[in-house]
């Protein structure tokens, strides 16, 4: 009855698995980029920012409009040479816009609730997520948008396997951004303030850390990373819809939990592991691959709730 039993995968070879691992790394890089937003916010505020997936969606849309305005619309079929700095500007613009949105969400929806129950904050987050999804449908239209083409997708051979060039871009950009973020948090003063807040917000305040500003910065950074994910995905899978953030957000959150919430390297690792797990399970059954994320989530929570790289510390009673 279940397709799992009747579909015999034809000739599963080591190469096939390797190829799926590579696919998974590309997929996981995007999860990682979005997962850092969840992990940082959760680290500081103990809040699941449900609206983070929608910030990723906005990131894609924020780059769509200028990109369209630059004139690289797929409808025309022409592919003018796009200078690299314009693509860079597209990323930066979308990151800045998303950072602003992230701070705005924090200021308007979450800050008033800083001292109320965590449940109230969680529900507000769900509300913000619903609001952005539905407002997105009204503003952008429910119809999917095709993202302008910057580079022709071609497959690049890498030894026994191959990967599309856009996927390689995703992996490389994600790696750079994640490393940059990690260094920022570990090596700079504002980064230290963030770590202090996530360790103990009250003590951090006593030590002279401007908590409000630090929290706002956390949201800005996380949202900017999500924007990068949004633009990268838009370039690789040129279809934008206002609901695209929903599943992506959930999976990225799961990646954050898997890696150990509060830890940036954890988010990177969690994203990669989840992406690879999904792809590899998909070799046998793509129908059940979708359940992998949720099963992984439940297993991690049961076996090691602190995640792969998280600090284990029981909640204070």
């Amino acid at each position: 009855m279940l397709p799992l039993l009747e579909t015999e995968a034809p000739g599963i070879t080591a190469e096939l698995i390797l190829q799926q691992v590579a696919n998974g790394v590309a997929k996981g890089s995007v999860y990682a980029l979005i997962a850092v937003g969840y992990t940082m916010v959760y680290g500081v505020l103990q809040l699941i920012n449900f609206a983070h997936g929608e910030v990723y969606m906005l990131g894609a849309y924020f780059s769509y409009y200028p990109a369209k305005w630059f004139g690289y619309v797929p409808e025309t079929g022409e592919k003018p040479k796009v200078p690299l700095y314009l693509i860079g500007a597209l990323f930066v613009g979308s990151m800045a816009a998303c950072a602003a949105v992230g701070m705005l969400i924090e200021r308007l929806a979450y800050r008033p609730l800083r001292n109320s129950s965590r449940l109230a904050a969680l529900i507000t987050a769900i509300g913000v997520s619903l609001f952005l999804q539905n407002a997105g449908q009204m503003v952008f239209g429910a119809d999917p948008k095709g993202f302008p083409v910057f580079m022709d997708q071609e497959s690049v051979p890498l030894g026994p396997i191959e990967l599309a060039n856009t996927k390689l871009v995703i992996i490389v950009v994600a790696a750079i951004m994640m490393t940059g973020l990690h260094l920022f948090v570990q090596r700079t003063k504002p980064g230290a303030a963030m770590r202090a807040c996530s360790f103990d917000m009250r003590t951090a305040r006593l030590m002279g850390v401007n908590v409000d500003r630090t929290v706002a910065m956390t949201f800005a950074l996380g949202s900017a990373m999500a924007a990068v994910g949004g633009v990268l995905v838009a370039m690789d899978q040129p279809r934008l819809t206002p609901l695209m953030g929903l599943m992506m957000g959930l999976k990225a959150f799961i990646a954050a939990v898997l890696g150990g919430i509060g830890s940036i390297p954890g988010a990177a690792l969690g994203g990669l592991v989840l992406g690879v797990a999904e792809s590899v399970v998909g070799t046998w059954s793509t129908t059940y691959a979708e359940a992998v994320a949720f099963i992984v989530l439940i297993l991690v929570l049961l076996v090691k709730p602190s995640g792969l790289l998280g600090k284990s510390g029981r909640e204070k009673v």
Binding site: Y42, L47, F253, V257, L297, L301, P305, E315
Partner: peptide
Amino acid sequence: KGDYLAIA
């Protein structure tokens, strides 16, 4: 507890 239970 809390958020974790919600997600599970």
